[in-house]
Design a binder for these strands. Structure first.
Length: 927
RNA sequence: GCGGAUGUGGCGUAAUUGGUAGCCGCGCUAGACUUAGGAUCUAGUGUCGAGAGACGUGGGGGUUCGAGUCCCUUCAUCCGCACCA
């Protein structure tokens, strides 16, 4: 019987489905293990061969854990809301729900063919009202909570209100927007609207005027992680800065906890690094500078308070409130002109000429609290409004941006730090600022002679003593803008009364997405929901028109999988206590600053509420590398319909043209297929080399336009899912990015055929012998058991595949057809190739699925040897091998090896200087 | 500029603690079987050299009996962040 993979795979996929093989339930008798894949956005293009890489890895791990007695939760679902479906809807009028449904069906079909062990009973879709009801519900809870910096956790807003009622807000240490101080009495005097506006400053989900990333082409605002270099990540449209009233999540309240939490996580260093940079903690202090001729103080944030004696000017961000306040009459026009100029520039342009120095003097001065000197205040766009206080003290001597600015505008530069071994020098001779991370303070009054670190401490102490500032930690992490002016997303369970937002009662959930006639903004610029009829509460209050962003639905999906059908809560206590958290999360690194920050935040909030038992959601995270495309080229002779083979192309003037990789094998073009590929090439002629047309190749992104997309369905059709699974793993280390190259797939497919043959006799009948295996056969099996177990534990799946090949090669050599070897081998292989092993397992006479088997136990006794063939090196170069018993004494080996005939040649009659013997490893002779 | 990762045959890669560099596979070469081969099997395949042998893990230097692995230095590629005070 031949290995008929198509038949076998369909048969077992059907069996698994009918027998609910992969259904899991809470089972307190077994340890739990939760393996999660980052769920996909179901795009219209379907899956290409790169998408399942991580899914295959996690599936192998899940199956392995199951075989080892764990109760494994391994779910899958869809991040079904998103821009592409909506853009398509705008173009075609087709409801995004319809296209999404079609795409999901296609994804599911493709996933099923690969033979994953997902419990589909637990599938979630973010666009399903049963699901997004809980997204909305969490939003309501965030609205109803504030962050108490003293207790370092979220607390109910009611508690805050009663605090306001009794003591006002002066004693409250909250993560909040800027709010004036008020007393209990003042609070009680406020009307409802005023109170609600104050409360918005405290809520974890709040509405505020903020500078947002506005993308005109998409007609929506975007979060920071959705913008890269001034363009939208989705679609690549330009993004501009604009002030708008938007919903935000107070993620910044959790900055420190998000940072601290990283320590405990088993994530790659590079990923942690990315998150640390994104959160961007910097320690320093805030200092007040008295503005001359005003009562007000100008507060700046600095990480280097020690350099305060080196301050020669101040710089304000163009958006700073101080600009209007302090600009003198004769500088007004110049400042206004500069601000108008900067406003016109897009974020993109601003970033493009970082090196270009620009700015304008306000005419105003502040007083340095330590030197008493007057310092001019400038405005420049190198200072960001959103970071620190939007104002800086410039220390041109020791900061390269300040240095460039001072040089450009001829402002004084003072050296206040000198490195050990250096002499102070004249700043006029410098090309750049002087590195001051370490060194001794000079020209710095009371901190002169101190080491910089010590000086920082002493300066801050002094600042606090004089009550002109405080120690301060700043974070780069911004609150997340949470509204999108789009249709295809979760509606906000929010209505407006007197322009003040209120959340709906939980009983009103889910607030379902209404129908609209068009998926475009309204004529007066309102979001698409402005087109919905009766988009009001029962009482007639208008409902919020924005919808939630993509990360809303993906922030707690891992919790919902634990208890997907629960209609009383996001997740039950029972389910959460059992499944706890994700033990293994596999996905791409592209979510490092988006999803992985937001969902950690989201989870910490739920943890504060006492709803979940773990404060970090993803214990271990593995980033699979990207699968790039491998493109092929043909070379068309200019002006002719004639193509020249790769190695002859330099003899002609040619144009390089992408050719579909699916009609190229081993870089040799299928000429007939090429002629059929495009009518233009129907009559193409070819200049061949050795009778073949050889194509060029390059590694590029996998995309339709490069004709290098390889579809898993085609591979499965040709080789089967087991081959696909093995080959994806065989390509190289999981975490490394690599091009997809179908060329090597034959080897993996041959391996399966070879495996298959071990179970069949010469007449093609299934036959195993019950004979006792030889020592060698046992050794082969147990070596493999050990290797595979170790490899899976460290996600080294590529080496597993070659270990299986070695195993099958050896068993073939040994002509082993013994049940005692070949049955356990099936179990070991089954996580990788579930179909063929299931088939053979049943042929072996088992009635139950191989997934219910137990992973064989490695017995080291089978690997014990009594002698070892030592490699013998001379001065580190291996020259010959010689066998000695393993229990032979070092001294005896030393004597024996020198006596050996072959050794004489290398010793050239001389006595060795030294002989090193590492038992069981190596002998090295120094001559 | 800062941070991270990676450099090994024609190609994908292996070498888990410093101990035989190149496992496994692709491709290639030769052969067997075959009407045929994009099937199967056998042998070979890092480079140079007729050979003995020499060289060889991006380059240079070091530690060591011994370095792909450790240290210093340098180059290249990829990724992330970036006027963050």
């Amino acid at each position: 019987m031949d290995y008929n993979f198509n038949e076998i795979e369909q048969k077992w996929q059907q069996y698994w489905k009918e027998n609910l093989t992969y259904k899991v339930d809470i089972d307190p008798s077994k340890p739990k293990y939760y393996v999660l894949d980052m769920f996909p956005y179901p795009s219209g293009a379907g899956l290409h061969v790169g998408h399942p890489l991580g899914y295959i890895a996690s599936d192998i791990y899940s199956r392995y854990k199951t075989l080892n007695g764990f109760n494994v939760l391994h779910p899958m679902g869809y991040d079904a809301y998103g821009l592409p479906a909506e853009q398509y809807a705008i173009q075609t009028g087709q409801h995004p729900a319809v296209t999404t449904e079609v795409n999901i069906k296609r994804y599911r079909g493709q996933l099923d063919k690969i033979g994953f062990s997902y419990d589909w009973n637990r599938e979630v879709r973010t666009s399903d009202p049963h699901y997004y009801r809980w997204t909305q519900w969490v939003f309501i809870q965030m609205f109803k909570h504030w962050y108490n910096n003293d207790t370092q956790k979220a607390e109910p807003i009611d508690k805050l209100i009663s605090e306001f009622e009794t003591k006002g807000n002066s004693k409250i240490n909250a993560a909040c927007s800027e709010t004036p101080v008020f007393s209990a009495k003042q609070w009680s005097m406020m009307n409802e609207k005023e109170q609600q506006e104050i409360l918005l400053n405290y809520r974890l989900a709040y509405l505020a005027d903020t500078m947002v990333n506005w993308c005109p082409a998409l007609g929506t605002v975007l979060a920071n992680d959705e913008v890269k270099e001034g363009f939208s990540v989705r679609g690549g449209h330009p993004v501009e800065q604009k002030t708008m009233k938007q919903w935000l999540l107070r993620v910044s309240a959790y900055s420190q906890r998000l940072l601290d939490g990283l320590d405990k996580l088993n994530w790659s260093d590079s990923l942690k690094e990315i998150q640390m940079n994104w959160i961007g903690r910097s320690e320093g202090g805030e200092v007040d500078f008295k503005i001359k001729g005003h009562d007000k103080m100008m507060r700046v944030f600095t990480t280097r308070p020690d350099t305060i004696f080196g301050v020669t000017f101040m710089v304000l961000a163009p958006e700073s409130d101080f600009v209007d306040l302090i600009t003198t009459v004769d500088q007004k026009d110049a400042v206004q002109e500069y601000i108008d100029e900067t406003k016109k520039r897009t974020e993109r342009e601003r970033m493009a000429d970082v090196k270009k120095v620009s700015g304008v003097f306000t005419g105003a001065y502040v007083t340095n609290p330590f030197t008493g000197e007057d310092i001019p205040v400038w405005v420049s766009d190198y200072v960001l409004a959103g970071y620190g206080t939007g104002a800086i003290m410039a220390v041109p001597g020791h900061d390269s941006r300040d240095f460039a600015f001072a040089r450009h505008f001829n402002l004084p530069i003072i050296q206040v730090v000198v490195k050990a071994g250096d002499e102070p020098s004249d700043p006029l001779t410098w090309d750049d600022s002087y590195d001051s991370k370490e060194g001794t303070m000079i020209n710095s009054g009371f901190i002169n002679g101190l080491d910089a670190q010590e000086a920082i401490r002493k300066t801050v102490d002094e600042i606090e003593k004089r009550n002109i500032g405080t120690r301060k930690i700043n974070y780069r992490l911004r609150d997340a803008i949470f509204s999108r002016q789009r249709y295809w997303g979760e509606p906000f369970p929010v209505y407006f009364k007197d322009d003040v937002p209120y959340v709906m009662d939980e009983s009103e959930l889910p607030l379902e997405l209404p129908e609209v006639d068009k998926y475009l903004p309204t004529e007066d610029g309102q979001p698409p929901l402005g087109r919905a009829e009766n988009w009001t509460t029962k009482e007639g209050y208008p409902i919020e028109l924005s919808t939630m962003p993509g990360f809303a639905g993906s922030s707690a999906y891992y919790l919902r999988y634990m208890d997907p059908h629960n209609s009383n809560g996001l997740v039950s206590k029972e389910a959460n206590n059992y499944w706890q958290d994700v033990d293994l999360y596999i996905g791409g690194t592209e979510h490092a600053t988006g999803h992985l920050v937001y969902s950690r935040f989201w989870n910490k909030f739920l943890f504060d509420m006492g709803l979940v038992c773990k404060d970090e959601p993803y214990k271990k995270l593995v980033n699979q590398g990207m699968i790039q495309g491998r493109s092929n080229f043909v070379y068309r002779i200019k002006g002719e319909n004639k193509f020249v083979s790769f190695n002859l192309r330099n003899d002609f003037e040619v144009v390089e043209i992408h050719v579909d990789v699916n009609i190229v094998k081993h870089d040799v073009l299928d000429l007939d297929a090429f002629r059929d590929w495009n009518p233009e090439y129907k009559n193409a002629e070819f200049i061949l080399e050795e009778g073949k047309y050889v194509c060029g190749w390059a590694v590029e992104k996998m995309s339709k336009s490069m004709y290098n997309v390889v579809n898993p369905d085609d591979i499965i059709e040709q080789y089967g899912a087991d081959t696909l699974r093995l080959y994806e793993m065989f390509l190289g280390p999981l975490e490394q990015s690599k091009p997809w190259d179908t060329n090597g797939i034959d080897g993996v497919h041959k391996f399966l055929k070879k495996l298959w043959k071990l179970y069949f006799n010469q007449n093609g009948e299934f036959e195993l012998s019950n004979e006792k295996p030889t020592k060698e056969e046992y050794k082969t099996l147990h070596k493999t058991i050990k290797k595979i177990g170790d490899d899976i534990e460290r996600f080294s799946f590529n080496t597993s595949v070659s270990a299986f090949m070695i195993c099958v090669n050896e068993l073939t050599e040994q002509k082993c057809h013994k049940r005692e070897i070949l049955e356990p081998l099936l179990i070991v292989l089954s996580p990788f190739a579930p179909h063929i092993t299931e088939e053979l397992w049943h042929l072996c006479g088992h009635a139950e699925s191989i997934t219910k088997a137990t992973f064989p136990i490695f017995n080291p006794d089978y690997l014990v040897e009594d002698s070892f063939e030592y490699p013998v090196s001379f001065n580190g170069k291996m020259r010959f091998k010689i066998e000695f018993p393993l229990d032979m004494q070092k001294a005896d080996i030393e004597k024996e090896v020198v006596k050996a005939d072959v050794a004489q040649k290398w010793l050239e009659g001389k006595a060795p200087k030294k002989v090193i013997v590492v038992p069981g490893r190596i002998i090295n002779i120094v001559v």
